[in-house]
Design a protein around this nucleic acid. Structure first.
Lengths: 222, 222
DNA sequence: TCCGGGAAAATTATAGATAATAATCAAGTC
DNA sequence: GACTTGATTATTATCTATAATTTTCCCGGA
């Protein structure tokens, strides 16, 4: 019934856990117990441990020797750090991708932007936003760079979902359109600097915290 | 006898293997067989598999499901990719580190540069070079960024050792000194642009290839 | 007879399951 | 405050299944 095609169990488990961590279904700081996870996936602890090592490498989990692994927690400093790393790396990727961008790709990216504008919830907005970035960056053909950017996008999504859990207001993404316009007219420098600013813009918004108080949450919205 | 201090077996195994891969003791493309590794380290295959996942995440090994894991191979394109990623990320780190740099740190970095100039072999030059970069970047206090840079340094070292296996000519590192001078006089922009150029300089040199022929090897020398 | 191609069998290695032991930590308990 | 207990994790050892690889072997053709 299952498809043990070309994927190892450890990869599937780590992806499933990553999705939950990103979606905020598992609280930061809570423990990931290998036997529980193993039981849930109908697997033994061996692939689960491998999955944990993968999550660790992605920065989604932290492991303390002999004490188990926990979902990584994060703070404003890390949000800023990820934003700046994304800016640096995405600009690099865009510079190399620009010469390879076709009109078809830019049209697809515009469609993704539109889909994002029309999104009624965070989840679908994030998906549209991610595919916009992926579309304009993938043609750089630098696998290692793209993998790093993917990991940073996962972290970004986590911050985002932590801040905007339920409600989401639709808004038109002017940055994306400016980037596309610059790319269409071959103004690579302008596109890059808009992208850098776009990615580093950190949205803030109040969220209900424990104890009936209100604290401020931060996330990368781009 | 052994010191199972604060480190898990998987971490120690992956470090040991990483050292060998970086040093070129294991050829790119050759297989890492879990049972052999397990036997060598007196461990079972479970921690070995975890070590493999770590190496994979660092880009030092590639794993094909059901076919085992091999030492990652690399080519000129990847050398360039790593060089550009290092330039982007190290510049970012330096910008944040600059305000926190003390005279003591810069003196240490100068000592590291001197040690590099006096190195008679690649191995010790690489060590001195790495500590120079680490010294001036660590004060940025961005753990995720520093971890990424560390991985890129490991890749750089691998390229370097593949090209300069035995011989090494001493040379004085003018770039390092220029960077330190700029940092001492608080010219952060100048320091950053020198660093960017320094890291992206790709040295080339002929190495004996199989079949009595000579091919050219490339590496990041900075 | 010798040779090459390819099917089938044997071998090897990986992936995973299961069970057992040791080490660690967190609470209680005296 | 020291000690004990229980829970959980880390690690090892052993075992099974399955996929890859290698070897063997057979057959047809020169």
């Amino acid at each position: 019934m299952s498809k043990p095609k070309e994927e190892t169990l450890a990869v599937r488990i780590s992806r499933a856990l990553a999705d939950r961590i990103i979606a905020g279904q598992i609280e930061p700081g809570s423990r990931l117990r290998q036997d529980h996870v193993a039981e849930e996936f109908g697997a033994s602890h061996v692939p689960v441990r491998e999955a944990f090592r993968r999550l660790e490498a992605q920065g989604l989990a932290v492991s303390e020797p002999r004490r188990g692994v926990r979902v990584a927690s994060f703070n404003l400093a890390e949000v800023k750090e990820v934003a700046e790393m994304r800016a640096a790396l995405e600009v690099l990727a865009l510079r190399h991708a620009a010469p390879n961008l076709t009109a078809a790709i830019l049209d697809e990216a515009e469609a993704a932007t539109k889909a994002g504008d029309e999104s009624r919830d965070v989840r679908s907005w994030e998906e549209a936003n991610r595919s916009f970035h992926r579309l304009i960056l993938t043609p750089c053909a630098m696998p290692r760079l793209l993998a790093s950017i993917d990991d940073l996008h996962a972290a970004s999504a986590r911050f985002l979902f932590a801040a905007w859990r339920a409600d989401w207001e639709a808004r038109t993404d002017h940055d994306h359109r400016a980037i596309l316009a610059a790319l269409r007219s071959r103004q690579v420098d302008a596109a890059c600097s808009t992208l850098a600013g776009h990615v580093q813009w950190i949205g803030r918004r109040p969220v209900p915290a424990s104890g009936g108080k209100v604290r401020e949450a931060f996330a990368i919205v781009g």
